[in-house]
Simulated assay, not measured.
Amino acid sequence: MKSAVLVIDVTNDFLTGSLKNDRALKTIQPIKELLGRAHQQAVPVIYVSDAHYKEDHEFEIWGQHSMKGTWGGQITEELAPKADDYTFEKRTYSAFFQTGLDSLLRDLQVDNVILTGVVTNICIQHSAADACFRGYEITIPKETTEALNDDDYEYALNYVQNMYGAKITSLSDTLN
């Protein structure tokens, strides 16, 4: 089985900006550790981040955030992509929706996606759904994703496990 690590929405706005989430800050170090392992093992690392335009309908729900070309829309410096990593922009919840991600994963012959980032019950959950619908296996290391509260976090992990067969693992059991 060939894996790729997907790093979803680790932008400044999600961590310290307009949608600041102190819970999400706890994911930085575990994601950094996982990325170190991925790079050592030549596992592809793919960033997919919100890059919104002022017309995006999502603002009706969440307010303006991660605007394309702004500081808030940039990937946080602590998790900045390496030269050989891949980056995609998205305008809605799923990392797969109109991003080119699926084509890249198929070119790389990936069959397992390791989902990391925020927010577990929104972008991670919707990305897991689209990954499942496209035939990918899904792994989620618990320490590398976070929601706005415990209930949403646990619900989302249970949902993707029960509905999409996602493997919920610990960081220590991922890419070892």
Rank of each mutant, 00 (worst) to 15 (best):
D84F: 02
G73D: 13
Y53G: 02
V48G: 07
K90V: 15
D56C: 03
A83S: 14
H57Q: 05
K90M: 14
Y86H: 15
K68I: 11
P81A: 07
D84K: 15
H52C: 03
I28W: 07
P30K: 04
V48N: 04
D56I: 08
R37K: 15
L35I: 14
I46M: 02
G69W: 09
D84M: 14
A38P: 09
D50C: 06
Y47T: 10
G36H: 08
G72D: 07
E89I: 03
S66F: 05
P44Q: 05
T70D: 11
P81H: 01
K54N: 10
S49V: 07
E77N: 13
V45R: 09
G69N: 07
K54T: 10
I31K: 06
Q41V: 07
S49H: 10
E89Y: 05
L34H: 08
E58G: 04
P81Y: 14
E58V: 12
G69S: 11
D84Q: 15
D85N: 04
Q64D: 11
A42D: 14
Y86F: 15
S49A: 12
E33M: 07
E58K: 00
V45G: 01
M67Y: 04
K26S: 12
T76W: 01
R37P: 06
W62L: 01
H65G: 03
L34D: 05
H39W: 13
V48A: 06
A42Y: 12
K90D: 12
E89H: 15
Q64F: 11
K90W: 14
E77L: 12
G72Q: 04
D50P: 06
W62H: 00
D85V: 14
G73V: 15
T27C: 10
S66R: 02
Q40E: 13
